[in-house]
Design a protein around this nucleic acid. Structure first.
Lengths: 150, 150
DNA sequence: AGTGCCTACTTCCCGATGGTGAGCAACTCT
DNA sequence: AGAGTTGCTCACCATCGGGAAGTAGGCACT
């Protein structure tokens, strides 16, 4: 009985540690910045585009909402707005509004956003470099016999 | 009228190009590997753990299902299985089954998986380095007056 | 006048997927 | 019998991304 109580206490302590880790800020941040639209927007604002060869990376520059909407293929106004708001909140982009007619809103990477963009370029490069190999692996996996043993 | 038709054709061509890019394999792959459980599992199999200081990266080694379940805080059996299957299909991990009682199943990074793990370490490091700054930015953003102009 | 364009979003609805909780099978030990 | 190990599987539900349509204000063209 004393052994069981000690085991239960250890399990409880582990559960609490797990809960702590699961809400850890840096872990949540990694999840956040790993969002697909985040990556594509950082890339666009950083002067590049993905998927494309990386040979001609442009310079980071401010871009307008409609520019981003056109350049980031497949993004909807909703996801664009949502992601830009999130990036702004995290301090990764600045949003500037000029009261022209029509209104002009532009977004630009901060230094922090630029550091993330630079860091994410490696991951983008990895995907471009290895996509063919992964596709082959998938084909091989899908072609193999279904295995029943567990 | 001829001008309108030409403009419509250009818009149509752009829409088709967008559709192509949106399903581009390397872009899909980047989305895939950016999944939060993927990152954490690659890290665990690569001998490290996140979030933790990176000073003591261990060596990549095979790990059993239950080991991974214990080490990756917060993951459920469902997500663990699902993610491991996906990693196996992409050729990023190998799954080995030994018919012991109970059965022994272990997972190990492939060379491809290891290359991805190495690439993702930079992103993990970025999150750990900058999490405090991002939290401050969020607090500042949340504290500012609500702006009504668009 | 009407229509279409530009700007930067917003709203509503639905479906996919992640998450939770419980369970399965086969064995061993108490 | 119950409790533990192994590695999953299944049912249900909540969340959030995605799709489609819409808003407002101005300007240009027919």
């Amino acid at each position: 009985m004393a052994t069981t109580t000690a085991a239960q206490r250890r399990a409880q302590a582990r559960t609490e540690f797990d809960a702590f880790l699961a809400v850890c800020p840096s872990r949540q941040l990694l999840d956040r910045v790993s969002d697909k639209w985040v990556g594509l927007l950082l890339c666009a604002l950083g002067g590049g585009s993905f998927p494309q060869p990386s040979a001609e990376e442009g310079t980071p520059r401010a871009m307008r909402y409609s520019e981003l909407l056109r350049q980031v293929a497949g993004v909807s106004p909703k996801m664009l707005t949502q992601t830009l708001r999130s990036l702004e909140r995290d301090g990764l982009v600045t949003r500037s509004v000029v009261a022209t007619v029509p209104v002009t809103v532009s977004y630009e990477l901060t230094d922090l956003g630029l550091s993330l963009h630079v860091t994410m370029r490696a991951l983008k490069g990895w995907a471009e470099t290895h996509v063919a190999e992964v596709l082959e692996q998938r084909a091989a996996y899908d072609a193999r016999p279904v295995e029943k043993i567990t």
